[in-house]
Design a protein around this nucleic acid. Structure first.
Lengths: 199, 199
DNA sequence: TAGGCTTGTCAACAAGCGTTGGCCAACAGG
DNA sequence: CCTGTTGGCCAACGCTTGTTGACAAGCCTA
């Protein structure tokens, strides 16, 4: 998999592959899963270490503390660059679909959301994601630059509400929705929040 | 069992006033506050008891366990009966306003939301509130009886998303919104989810 | 082969948790 | 008065948590 562990060239090859990389990534994967399923407090270092089949003290050695582990495990990239390529009237629907993709691809967003609710650092992480990744996208579709933040916030409220009810609280009617239904219902909403004239 | 410590009339006077009622309600108030601010795990019995200026063991005596305390502290009544009195075209806006009222009147809804994210019993409590109090209201405004649950779920997603971003995660642009702005933006959304033809 | 990092195991620590039971003071009814 | 019930505090229990340090085995270089 890793091919050459690169003992020789260390200069431009990134941070020098270590023998423990397998353990590191096993811990990170287990951590993501536990944080997503249990939230911050109930995702214990001991449980994560057990999932990764490793000693809890190794988690501490590699990541310093539980906070450090969370910071290392949850680095979220929404990959929202291609929004300018869809027709302007379909931006809402495309964004809804994109978020559904991300939400179902892995558990990182669920982890962020769950942790953000009970942990201050988690909430700040989510605020940062919104500021650095959501607002800039809204900036490209939104007419009035003064309203960008507000409109992005409205979209976030709608999309995170969907995620909350569908993936976390699991309200039965929201869980039962098909992908196309979600796009058809929420697409126009997001579209309006982004582009409609201010009411 | 309980005997009759009541001084005078015990027949139709409810559950017989006790000498400890002041302590009981102090505990319940502190519990609501802590659950809303910290979520289930971090809202410790010891902290709640300290807020209520009482010994932790009394909390156990009165409410049996931490689960029992949560069940007793968070009994949520959305008071959603008067929806039939507003003009049918204004139902969405009225509902948004009503929820803002409830959310800002006390901290119970925030408590339910925060606990529902990390605690299974909390999630079931929220599902019950949705089933028993939200869906029936939608039933009265919604044309097609087969779609009532779906449409109620969509409204819940939008409204809980607002609450999540405004009162829990505190995204700055959402916190900054004025009440009229929220009603103007979300009202039409909720209205559409409830009454517009299925897309 | 010797010596220094790295990776891993094990046992323990202090702190905090929910929970329990015993004890004392204040009250109530006879 | 005495007696039983109630309200309250205190000290402790068993357990789990994040975190630490000592120590053995493995690898790499010299």
């Amino acid at each position: 998999m890793t091919g050459t562990p690169s003992r020789s060239t260390d200069s431009a090859n990134g941070p020098a592959a270590r023998r423990s990389d397998a353990s590191r990534s096993a811990i990170l994967a287990a951590a993501r899963e536990r944080f997503a399923a249990d939230g911050y407090e109930r995702a214990t270092i001991r449980a994560i270490a057990k999932d990764a089949r490793i000693d809890p003290s190794m988690v501490m050695r590699y990541f310093g503390s539980k906070d450090g582990l969370f910071a290392a495990a949850v680095t979220l990239d929404l990959r929202m660059t291609d929004v300018s390529q869809v027709p302007p009237t379909e931006v809402g629907r495309a964004l809804v679909g994109h978020f559904l993709d991300i939400w179902e691809a892995n558990e990182e967003l669920t982890a962020v959301l769950r942790v953000a609710v009970t942990n201050k650092a988690g909430a700040e992480r989510l605020q940062g994601i919104f500021r650095d990744q959501v607002v800039p996208v809204a900036q490209r579709v939104c007419p009035d630059p003064e309203q960008v933040a507000t409109r992005a916030g409205l979209c976030a409220a709608q999309l995170m509400g969907l995620a909350l009810t569908r993936y976390v609280v699991r309200l039965p009617p929201v869980v039962a929705l098909a992908r196309e239904e979600i796009e058809a219902w929420l697409g126009p909403t997001v579209q309006r929040y982004l582009t409609a004239p201010s009411p």
